[in-house]
């Protein structure tokens, strides 16, 4: 069992990474227009998203 202890910090680091990523997407406003995001993926024009830091 103790041989596998190195897995614990790895899993914690991965989990923390996920948490930080989620908090970043939250701050970045990616959950502010969920309906719109679902529609926008269907647009034909594939223009790069203009820099938009929050509505």
């Amino acid at each position: 069992m103790t041989d596998f202890f190195y897995l614990i910090p790895i899993s914690l680091i991965l989990g923390t990474g996920g948490l930080i990523l989620f908090l970043w997407t939250l701050r970045n406003g990616q959950y502010e227009d969920l309906d719109g995001a679902a529609e926008r993926i269907l647009y034909e024009e594939d223009e790069p998203r203009r820099d938009w830091d929050g509505i």
Partner: peptide
């Protein structure tokens, strides 16, 4: 400069 529609809140900025 830019216009962005928010479909969830039905607003345009």
């Amino acid at each position: 400069e830019s216009a962005r529609v928010n479909l969830s809140t039905k607003r345009v900025a």
